[in-house]
Amino acid sequence: MGFFSKLFRGPEIDMEKSSANAQKMRRLFNQVVENGDRYKLICGYTEDVSRFNYGFVHGSKTKIGNLIVGWNEAEEVIVVVPTVPDLSGCGDPAWYRRSEILKAYRNKYPTDAFVICPDRKGYLAINAYDWLEDEKLYVYVSQEQELADFTAFFTERFAKK
């Protein structure tokens, strides 16, 4: 009985590991972003899919870039910091102010992503998640509430046509 109930319950989240990573995320973000505490945080990832329009092995090689996404509701700003799954370091932050970007929208197909186009040339698609088990590819963090908050902020306050 115990075995089957465990089997059907699916994977369980290690909350200790998750909260340790959430703290690391915060430290890393505050390290590179001034007044980092003014931003709420969520982890996401982005996929470089532009190159998969050829060849037989369509989609067999996906590049994943992990992102720490911070947002400030009052200032309508999103800050994106590239990182790695073990959160040992991060790159330089990129700021997206609603007043300065070209457009932002939520994409449903092919994947559920939050797309920001700072100008006509480039775009950033952020795939946000509540929890992903594969910690070799993604940051191991449980963030159901943060995902709901970010989705609400992006769709209601930040989206721009």
Binding site: K24, R27, L28, Q31, V32, R51, L87, S88, G89, C90, G91, D92
Partner: peptide, 23 residues
């Protein structure tokens, strides 16, 4: 493709990387 891209990104400075301070 990588080689072709490399032709255009030779002069670019490597991206900055900040290690987590405690680590």
């Amino acid at each position: 493709l990588e080689r072709f891209k490399g032709l255009f990104s030779r002069r670019k400075a490597p991206p900055a990387w900040h290690e987590l301070e405690q680590e």
